[in-house]
């Protein structure tokens, strides 16, 4: 019963959304070169399914690669900021400033720096746009560790590495996964940004662009829906990892 509700409610919500969308287009009498309706989409998928599969795969692996890079670099920066006051003071304004830059402006910079390295540029953008939340949350998680936690192990002569491994790292995991949920969506946006903006791109973003160039509106909307599905899949992959590694932080609601 409970699991039925868990699956049934979201599916019902999606169906309602599709019906409203369809109704909106029909009631306004919009032709499909103004706005496509859900009933136009199956046709687009059927016709271009091979392109969708290839594009989805390219978008997916580059997003995940960028995200992995963001996790590694973000955790390292977070550790440096969490353990050293001076480094925190030094890095914080730089990071905030960097995060404030609209990442679209970096596409041409990257494109010039690494001409023709489309995969590399895309992964870099996914990384650049998504490491900030991870760095900040890990940094805050580590620097707000109550001193008693450290003292309990320190008084036993435990090394810094041991204290990090046994206490600081697991204690920061809930914050880390909270940030990862934000980062996964950001990385996805970063990948698509490069795919859409850069010429001769690949992935779903490029497919969207070609739909636009050919005024194939059903194709464009089909890409958007495919992106949404991919985004949902990535997000819930993170939720799954969170359950596995930081499930203890979840309180039973009674």
């Amino acid at each position: 019963m409970e699991s039925l509700q868990k699956i049934g409610v979201p599916i019902a919500a999606i169906l309602v959304f599709l019906v409203l969308w369809e109704a909106l287009v029909r009631l306004n009498g919009w032709p499909d070169y103004v706005m496509a309706s859900p009933s136009d989409l199956p046709q687009a998928y059927a016709r271009f399914w091979e392109l969708f599969l290839v594009g989805a795969w390219q978008t997916l692996w580059r997003t995940v690669a960028g995200l992995l890079l963001a996790v590694i670099v973000g955790v390292l920066i977070g550790m440096v900021m969490g353990f050293s006051r001076i480094m925190r003071d030094a890095l914080y304004p730089l990071l905030v400033g960097f995060n404030a830059i609209p990442k679209a402006t970096l596409v041409p910079v990257l494109a010039l720096l690494f001409i023709g390295q489309h995969d590399f540029n895309t992964v870099m953008m996914a990384f650049l746009i998504s490491f900030f939340p991870i760095a900040v949350s890990v940094g805050i998680g580590l620097s707000t560790l109550e001193p008693e936690y450290r003292d309990i192990l320190r008084s036993l002569g435990a090394s810094r590495v041991t204290i990090f491994r046994k206490i600081a790292l697991p204690k920061t995991l809930p914050e880390f996964f909270g940030a990862l949920k934000v980062s996964v969506t950001l990385a996805f946006i970063g990948t698509n940004l490069v795919e859409i903006v850069s010429p001769h791109g690949r992935g779903l973003g490029a497919l969207f662009l070609s739909g636009q160039t050919n005024s194939n509106y059903p194709l464009m909307f089909a890409v958007l829906i495919a992106l949404a599905v991919l985004g949902i899949a990535l997000y819930y992959a993170v939720v799954f990892l969170e359950r596995v590694f930081a499930g203890w932080a979840e309180r039973e609601t009674t």
Binding site: E146, E148, Y149, D151, I152, L153, S155, L156, G157, A158, T162, K166, I167, P170, K171, L173, A246, W248, A249
Partner: peptide, 29 residues
């Protein structure tokens, strides 16, 4: 020194470990 045990006002138990593994922690070190 390894020969000291500490307890504070805040019990500072590790939430990701069960009670048994919390008690065992000092032995691991």
């Amino acid at each position: 020194r390894k020969t000291v045990g500490m307890a504070f006002q805040n019990p500072v138990l590790l939430e990701w470990r069960n009670i048994l593994d919390n008690v065992i922690l000092p032995l691991e070190i």
